[in-house]
Design a protein around this nucleic acid. Structure first.
Lengths: 235, 235
DNA sequence: GTCATTAAATGTACGATGTACACTTAATTT
DNA sequence: AAATTAAGTGTACATCGTACATTTAATGAC
């Protein structure tokens, strides 16, 4: 395969550019990661992040959204560019630069058929296997970013279902920071932000008494997301 | 020019990858940016960030350091990867992805001869001209990152000379945030961190009375830099 | 040499925020 | 009806952030 590079660019080695997605989900009080069994050489059959090559007329953001959609069937997912990984030897098959993207999805909404086709599985954070290339590093960086963002953006809400209980929200934060939080302070803080709307339903799966369901006030959410804010949870 | 891509990679268009550096400096109580007049087509002669293509056996970090060194003569500069810019039409000459890097240098230390050779000039932030392609966007993103980092990392010290006065440090923060700060609170906060060592010299260029010179306690600096900390300046 | 000028240096009081902590309530199961 | 389980609630204290005015050191002008 040969490719013509315009002469004005004095370049000897054009590069391949890939995108890899670190896909976070949350259920059963655990933060989880969606991993696939790699279907191409090199390292076929090993655990890997979901990835793919950048298309000819695509931005990296578009590529990441496309690749995420291939695996989950979801659109409009929370995606953030994380880092461009460029060690010349990171991929033994060729010189490939990979830009990692960090995705937050609602586990219940993704397409399980598609996941099966890709040999994908959810892993608890504590049970992440050895991944190909520098993918474990990407996961570490993504987790760091998640911890940073969870303080200043309402990222939690990307991971929970539409309706959720305060104990669930607290469990999410406890999973992100691997730290127990005080119930009273947590509730005081999140409620004081005015982003939550209490519903007239209870979720009784978690206890006999049942916990009130809340949902998210979208307009408050948007204004917080744009202005930047401090998510008032002490960790 | 033709390039062979391993067949195992089902890719049609390899890409060019460039690096662009947003170079910050500080003097005369102003935050400044080092810009060059572009020496290649397209857009020859227009103002631009210093950039270059990624070499065959180089990581992006190495490329950024090399490119920064070409312009300034400096090594061991504070450099952070900022973002991979990938709009398919961002460079009208070819499909080029550019990874921006953000650099903090001490203005007094850079090589002015080299700068002259590249037609480089320092611009006050308020006087940044129209730049090529998406470079103004890169500058905006870099400034945002600087503002974020200045709260959580001692980045200020990359921009000041070895010995500096507290009024200088304060002026730097005022320039970064475009906001006047209270002298007493500022001093109390920065001194309470224990990162500064008071010297037995005064700098008398700024006033009759003269201001005490300080320098930076490297070991405290390193431990803060690694652990992450909160730079205790209210802005 | 005294006075005026300039910027540097210093401390405190008040309000806001963060943080620790224990009992009651609702519903189910035995 | 008694026991169990998780949900829900308020207060007191410490820490931190923030506003604010006067004194000090040195030089230059008269």
């Amino acid at each position: 395969m040969s490719v013509v590079i315009p002469e004005i660019y004095n370049v000897h080695t054009p590069l391949l550019v890939a995108v890899d997605c670190i896909i976070f989900g949350f259920n059963e009080c655990e933060l989880k990661l969606l991993l696939v069994k790699r279907q191409m050489e090199p390292a076929r059959g090993e655990w890997s992040l979901m990835g793919g090559f950048l298309g000819e007329h695509e931005s990296l953001d578009e590529a990441a959204a496309r690749i995420l959609n291939q695996l989950t069937g979801l659109t409009d997912v929370y995606l953030d560019q994380l880092y461009a990984h460029s060690d010349p030897d990171r991929d033994p098959g060729a010189r490939v630069i990979s830009v990692s993207y960090y995705a937050l999805i609602k586990i219940s909404q993704h397409n399980q058929e598609l996941a099966k086709e890709h040999d994908a599985e959810w892993f608890k954070l504590s049970e992440i296997p050895k991944l190909i290339f520098d993918h474990n590093l990407m996961v570490d960086m993504a987790l760091q970013l998640l911890r940073k963002q969870a303080k200043t953006k309402p990222v939690g809400f990307e991971l929970l279902p539409e309706k959720f209980t305060l104990p669930q929200l607290q469990a999410l934060y406890e999973a992100i920071y691997q730290k127990e939080l005080d119930r009273r302070n947590f509730r005081k803080n999140v409620l004081s932000m005015g982003m939550l709307e209490k519903l007239d339903e209870k979720d009784k799966t978690g206890s006999r008494k049942g916990a009130w369901l809340y949902r998210f006030n979208i307009s408050k959410y948007e204004s917080f997301r744009n202005q930047g804010f401090f998510f008032n949870v002490s960790v």
